[in-house]
Amino acid sequence: NEEPLPEGWEIRYTREGVRYFVDHNTRTTTFKDPRNGKS
């Protein structure tokens, strides 16, 4: 039961299956979860 991502964020996966987060607001990507700060 995960809380929803902030507005404008999306979860994607690399070809290796590593989860990362896309911030469409700033057009950046990060491996850090914007909901809780954990990677």
Rank of each mutant, 00 (worst) to 15 (best):
P34I: 01
R19H: 07
K38I: 15
Y13V: 08
R12Y: 08
E7L: 12
T30W: 06
S39Q: 14
K38E: 15
T29L: 13
K32P: 02
I11N: 01
T28Q: 10
R12N: 06
R19L: 11
N36R: 08
T26G: 06
N1T: 13
Y13C: 07
N36M: 09
R15L: 13
I11F: 06
R27Q: 15
E10V: 08
E2G: 10
T26L: 06
T14M: 04
Y13Q: 06
R27F: 10
G17I: 01
D33V: 00
K32L: 12
W9F: 05
L5F: 05
D33N: 02
T30A: 04
K32D: 14
R15P: 14
G17L: 05
S39K: 12
I11E: 10
H24N: 12
R19W: 05
D23P: 00
N1R: 13
N36W: 11
K38A: 15
R15Y: 13
P4M: 09
R27Y: 09
W9K: 00
F31A: 06
N36S: 12
G17V: 01
V18M: 10
T14E: 02
K38F: 15
N1H: 14
R15I: 13
G37T: 11
K32H: 12
T29F: 15
D33L: 01
V18P: 01
E16N: 14
V22M: 09
G8C: 07
R15S: 14
Y20S: 01
E7I: 11
N36L: 12
N1A: 13
G8Q: 05
T14W: 03
P34W: 01
W9T: 01
N25W: 07
W9L: 02
N1I: 14
F31Q: 07
S39N: 14
E3I: 11
F21S: 00
E10P: 00
N25G: 07
R19F: 06
W9S: 00
R12A: 10
G37M: 07
E7Q: 12
T14A: 02
T14V: 03
E3Y: 08
R12L: 10
F31K: 07
L5E: 02
G37Y: 11
T28K: 10
W9M: 02
Y20G: 00
N36E: 15
T30H: 09
P34T: 01
E2N: 11
E10M: 06
V22G: 00
E10Q: 08
Y13F: 10
T14P: 01
T30V: 05
T14N: 10
E7P: 14
E3P: 11
P6I: 03
W9G: 00
H24L: 10
R12T: 05
L5I: 06
L5A: 03
E16M: 11
R12S: 06
E3Q: 11
D23K: 02
V22T: 04
F31Y: 12
N25S: 08
N25D: 05
R19C: 13
I11R: 05
D23R: 02
R19Q: 12
N25V: 09
K32T: 12
R35K: 02
W9C: 00
P4W: 07
E10W: 03
R19Y: 06
G17S: 05
D23Y: 04
P34G: 01
R27N: 15
N1F: 13
P34Q: 01
P4L: 09
F31W: 12
E3F: 10
D33C: 00
R27I: 07
E10N: 04
T14I: 03
Y13P: 00
R35E: 02
E16L: 12
L5N: 02
V22S: 03
F31H: 09
L5C: 00
E16K: 14
I11H: 03
N36V: 12
G17T: 02
I11T: 07
T30R: 03
T26Q: 06
R19A: 12
S39H: 15
E7F: 12
Y20N: 01
I11G: 03
F21D: 00
D33I: 01
R35G: 03
R12F: 10
K32G: 06
G37I: 10
Y13R: 04
E2C: 14
E16Y: 13
Y13S: 04
P6E: 04
R15C: 12
T26E: 06
E7R: 13
P4V: 08
R15V: 13
D23A: 02
E16P: 05
I11D: 03
N36F: 10
P4I: 08
H24F: 09
T28F: 08
P4F: 07
T30G: 04
G37N: 13
R35H: 03
H24C: 08
E7Y: 12
T28C: 10
P34N: 01
R19P: 13
D33K: 02
K38Y: 15
P4S: 09
P6R: 06
S39A: 14
E10H: 06
E7G: 08
E3N: 10
G17E: 04
I11A: 08
L5Q: 02
Y13N: 04
D33S: 01
N1K: 13
E3T: 11
G17R: 05
E16F: 13
V18L: 13
T29P: 07
E7V: 12
G37H: 13
G17P: 00
D23I: 01
D23L: 03
E3H: 10
E7A: 14
R12I: 06
W9R: 00
K38V: 15
E7T: 12
E16C: 08
S39D: 15
H24R: 08
G8R: 05
H24E: 05
R15H: 13
G37F: 09
S39G: 15
L5V: 06
T28L: 09
